[in-house]
Nucleic acid binder design. Sequence first.
DNA 1: CACTGAATGTCGTAT
DNA 2: ATACGACGTTCAGTG
Lengths: 241, 241
Amino acid sequence: MIAVLFGRYPLSPLRSGSVRLVIARCEVRYTGRLTATLPEALRLLVFKSDGSVMVHADTGGYKPENWMTPPTAIEERGDPLERIVVRKLRSDDRLDIAISEVLSDVSHALGDARELEKQGVETELQEALSEATGWLEPGLRLVRREWPTGIGPVDLMCRDSDDGWVAVEIKRMATIEAVEQLSRYLELLRETPDLAACRGIVAAQTVKPQARALAVARGLDCVEIDLDVIRALREPDLTLF
Amino acid sequence: MIAVLFGRYPLSPLRSGSVRLVIARCEVRYTGRLTATLPEALRLLVFKSDGSVMVHADTGGYKPENWMTPPTAIEERGDPLERIVVRKLRSDDRLDIAISEVLSDVSHALGDARELEKQGVETELQEALSEATGWLEPGLRLVRREWPTGIGPVDLMCRDSDDGWVAVEIKRMATIEAVEQLSRYLELLRETPDLAACRGIVAAQTVKPQARALAVARGLDCVEIDLDVIRALREPDLTLF
DNA sequence: CACTGAATGTCGTAT
DNA sequence: ATACGACGTTCAGTG
């Protein structure tokens, strides 16, 4: 492999732990899974040390107008900067940045950042419901969380007041996909004689209308759950009123 | 409404058409659909004039570690900067940025950027195919695009050379999910007597092997399409050779 | 405003 | 590598 050495920088222009911010008048073209062209304008270019490249306008929120995720190889040409080509390794994707004017070009060392900690809602929903299955249906009791099947675990496996089996799929928001997922599980579960009559319940904070329609067509029940109410059920010392 | 005026800036700190880039040692906390906390570290903060806020590390690619999409209200406190609170309007989402050190704080006017042009998205495939259904199968003719069903529209509804109905699902890349989607449509369509024998075709630029296998097992056809070839069909003055 | 489906989705994980 | 599910998905289009 021959090192790529155009312009001022070698293949990886950034030392570990830094970002490079370029304000430049440029035209950008992405070719790969599709072709996306940005006409010439002043834009913000962000180069991260992991090889990420982002092209941002001053609007458009969250999403870059164009970008490339790692791993990448970055070539630069010209001094002053005229052109940057970002290639995605092991792929034909590429980002061509034609630069006509550089207003600013600075790098900042950032160092290593410890990791982001997330406390999700979905897990909490499952934990809460597993201790309050009666809220889904009177008399429903938990047999096991994460009941294994050949194609993935059922969130909750329960038995109803008549001892009939009930599989529960939990989502924050239930879409058609949630109904499909539960349908697949049931299809498999019902091959087991004991579970031939297993019912299904989709439990979610919100159930999309089309998901509900499909669930009904498939003979599945839908239950909308209120996390606050369930939390209250779990903590009897906290009353709702 | 009382204007929010902490620190140096009023509610919307940026004039139209600019970005503000801050390199700062900070701790960030998002609360909303979940709670996500970033421990103190040097980070890049990007404020766009549309109200977007992004918190980036030097790694992690494409995605900000934390962010807020418009519409937002931004409060700043302290000089030097100590704290930034970003609130999402009409929502309880908020981003708290506690700043211990500012290494850089610059704004750049970017002006208005003309829009991004994309080629090769699914819509384009659908447009092209709708005028060249014969390419999918000899004699196939379009009856209607976006044929409505209770669970969403069928991309193309056609009739074949024997006047039999054919539902077509179009994807850029067909995965198992595309096959599932078409299966759902057919399940519903076939409840209508006239459509009881409706066939299905998955049309995509690329069809994943497992998607093809599932399609075959379900009695659906798969066709890989070449957008360039179809374009050529639509524009007879352009020949392929 | 709510709902739906596409996306260069991205990102992690299990197979 | 591929498939699959989750994501603070985001985003655009439509009723």
